[in-house]
Amino acid sequence: MFKSLIEKNERRSQLSIMAQYLNTCFMISTVDDEYLISIEKGNVTNVEEGPFVMPSYIFKLTASKNEWLKFLQSTPQPGSHDIIAMLRRKVLKFEGDLHPLMSHLLYFKLLLASLRPTESNREN
């Protein structure tokens, strides 16, 4: 579901300038599946799919697969269009050291939104 974050595309390339000093590793969980994502200088450099025995990461975002699928629609429905909206509905959990996430909030929102189908040509 999140493996393609590693693939280069124009939207993701443009995002890296928003996070040029960011080096981190975070996890996205769909409860059943886990993805460990490494970022160096704002670029996704590795996406590893679990299961993991001893994963090491800075922060973790957990939502059910169904909720992530709703988020990843080309035009998501209200309440599924943003990670804070999902937090508000209590269907997404933020855990760990949230400093990299909150200090680059727009970057992470747009990075995840870059997985949405492109036909709408919308970023969020």
């Binding site: 035009t75 998501p76 269009h81 943003d82 200090s103 680059h104 909030l105 929102k109 969020n124």
Partner: peptide, 14 residues
């Protein structure tokens, strides 16, 4: 940066 990020999500994708 963070206030902008918060505000951005409150808007409609449309």
């Amino acid at each position: 940066e963070v206030c902008g990020g918060i505000a951005y999500g409150l808007m409609a994708p449309t």
